[in-house]
């Protein structure tokens, strides 16, 4: 089965995967390092990737989207794109928690020797994070908190790199190899394909915002008299 995966929880990326009964492989990828131009680059990137791979949408078996957590506007651009592509091509759609992509990278590299944490930048001096067992099974999360609330475990992902000194001072370690790693569609797709191979089910495409909008219900009117 061919899978198109999109993730815009941090960078914008897309990947085309072939998932079989025993393994999955990445056939093509698109990614940008920029975290603020998703609406511009994502659609042209997907079109070019599929054209170059010679795969028309009709041949896809599944559209996958990262559902965050991630900065809201960027996150929505990927989900809106995936939902609309799935609608237009009449393909099944599913969602994957974006931090699972980095966990997949860590486990695939053999770098997970104990429980570990994956963290990305949530801005506002906070991190999005989740805790995983050494085999990559998620144990808790996703959460959004200050870095001070992370457990004293190895912390991977670009969020770890941002707060490396603080995390190390509070007993976590920040391995250099994954200190700048962002969730990518390719890793997210491999992670999801493994779930499917294991007979697991994927989530729907609902975004994991983890925060409400900042809007406050207005209080009583201020008086000048």
């Amino acid at each position: 089965m061919l899978i198109l995966t999109i993730d815009t929880s941090a960078i914008a990326s897309a990947a085309l995967l072939s998932a079989g009964d025993d393994a999955a492989e990445v056939l093509a990828t698109f990614a940008t390092e920029d975290t603020r131009s998703h609406a511009e680059v994502l659609a042209p990137g997907i079109r070019r990737m599929l054209d170059d791979a010679g795969v028309p949408g009709a041949r896809l078996g599944l559209v996958l989207t990262g559902v965050g957590p991630g900065p809201f506007t960027g996150l929505r651009s990927g989900i809106a794109t995936a939902r609309t592509l799935a609608f237009a091509w009449d393909k099944p759609l599913a969602g994957v928690m974006s931090l699972d992509a980095v966990a997949w990278d860590v486990v695939a590299a053999g770098a997970a020797v104990s429980d570990f944490v994956v963290a990305t930048d949530a801005r506002r001096k906070e991190l999005y994070w989740a805790q995983y067992a050494a085999d990559g099974t998620r144990q808790s999360g996703p959460h959004v908190t200050a870095p001070s609330e992370l457990p004293a475990l190895p912390v991977h992902g670009a969020g770890a790199g941002l707060y490396a000194q603080q995390l190390e001072a509070q007993g976590s370690s920040v391995p250099e190899a994954f200190a700048r790693t962002q969730p990518t569609a390719a890793s997210l797709g491999l992670s999801a394909a493994a779930v499917l191979r294991g007979g697991g089910r994927l989530a729907d495409s609902s975004p994991l915002y983890l925060r409400e909008s900042d809007a406050q219900v207005p209080g009583p009117r201020k008086r000048a008299l």
Binding site: H38, L42, R83
Partner: peptide
């Protein structure tokens, strides 16, 4: 900005598809 982005991404996806 955030509102426009959703419509624009959906429209671009329709164009890709």
């Amino acid at each position: 900005a955030g509102a426009l982005m959703v419509g624009v991404c959906a429209a671009k996806a329709l164009a890709v598809a």
